[in-house]
Design a protein around this nucleic acid. Structure first.
Lengths: 198, 198
DNA sequence: TCTTTTTTTTGACTACGCTCAAGTTTTGAT
DNA sequence: ATCAAAACTTGAGCGTAGTCAAAAAAAAGA
């Protein structure tokens, strides 16, 4: 019986993530303390930090699965739109809808994206980028079939650029510097500009 | 003599910014404590926080002037390049060269960009965006003269998009996820893709 | 089973960002 | 010059993220 350790660890990790998830949702990221999380998970304070090196890491771990799911399920909906731009915006909107459930939390999450602190965090963030990129590539591929996208563009680069445009706009929106309407307009304008080129 | 207050405040603020600047450069942002800054500036701990609501605010205040200068002086150099893409890259490179003096500090700074916390911080960040945007617009205008850029594109939107491409790449670079060569390649590829459109 | 070694857990503790009630300085009125 | 009100400064103290030496638990060896 040498699997006892593994099983215990899995169980503890799960309890910590679940406790953190509940508390972040209930009280928000900032107002939740790591001690509370530990108490709610039934472990010592220090234990939390053996499963996540920082509180920010914990945030990513907690929401990675949900965000990944949200990205993946956004694509089918988006594909129903008529044009390339509309499909792209629908995809990003769907993704945004998940975020809008809790803007401060989304803000805390997005803030990490470009500026991760640990290896583990990096892997999870890269996974999210990759998923979003795959979806955008699929939208672009579809655009090639309808002739909206020229056959010889690099779809990966194009996807990255579209994501960059999204990313640049979402920060100010989540920080309350621009409202939803302004965000929508700016995003659409940016995507249209990208489509036509210089 | 009713200007005594103003003068005292200006002086204290200046001392705080100078002390913070020196310490951030010497020890890095994280390893510098607000108490040290206060001591070095010859003020009480609390005083620091009447001039900057948070340590992050202080970081922006401290480097705003230098970054602004760096952006402004990048343009003339950039204009000497032959093509639109090369001018853009030269501009961004020059700006990056300033950052490379201290990568962890640059990382801390860039991390703030999309996700400011206070009004004061927002103003300084927006100022930097505006400056960078003005330079990029100028590069694009020049491109319109040489025919590299079509006459009817919105230069502001195009500038924002170019900045978005830069921003998306610089995070991973400053975080050590990609090296300089990869950064350069990715940036150039992104800008070229934007120029040609979809 | 008992002992030793290895791995994991733990919570008292530390360090630091930030607050705020009390103290000090400046100002303008008299 | 004197005083009261207003504005500014201050540092002891608070809350919390994260550490680490010691304890507990599990595994391996005898």
């Amino acid at each position: 019986m040498s699997g006892r350790r593994e099983a215990n660890k899995r169980d503890k990790h799960k309890r910590i993530i679940e406790a953190a998830h509940r508390l972040f949702r209930e009280k928000g990221f900032d107002k939740t303390t790591t001690n509370e999380i530990a108490a709610a998970a039934g472990v010592g304070t220090g234990t939390v930090f053996t499963y996540a090196p920082t509180k920010d890491d914990l945030l990513i771990q907690v929401f990675h699965k949900e965000v990944a799911f949200s990205i993946d399920s956004a694509l089918p909906e988006a594909m129903e739109q008529a044009s390339l731009i509309d499909r792209t915006i629908a995809f990003l909107d769907f993704f945004l809808a998940y975020f809008e459930q809790d803007i401060p939390l989304a803000r805390a999450l997005m803030r990490q994206l470009g500026y991760v602190q640990s290896e583990a965090q990096r892997d999870l963030v890269l996974d999210l980028f990759r998923r979003a990129s795959l979806c955008l590539v699929e939208i672009l591929e579809d655009g090639q079939k309808t002739g909206e996208v020229s056959a010889d563009v690099s779809l990966e680069t194009a996807a990255a650029t579209m994501f960059a445009i999204f990313h640049l706009n979402i920060g100010p929106y989540l920080s309350g510097m621009i409202n939803r309407k302004e965000f929508d307009a700016s995003l659409r304008e940016g995507l249209k500009a990208f489509k036509r080129g210089l």
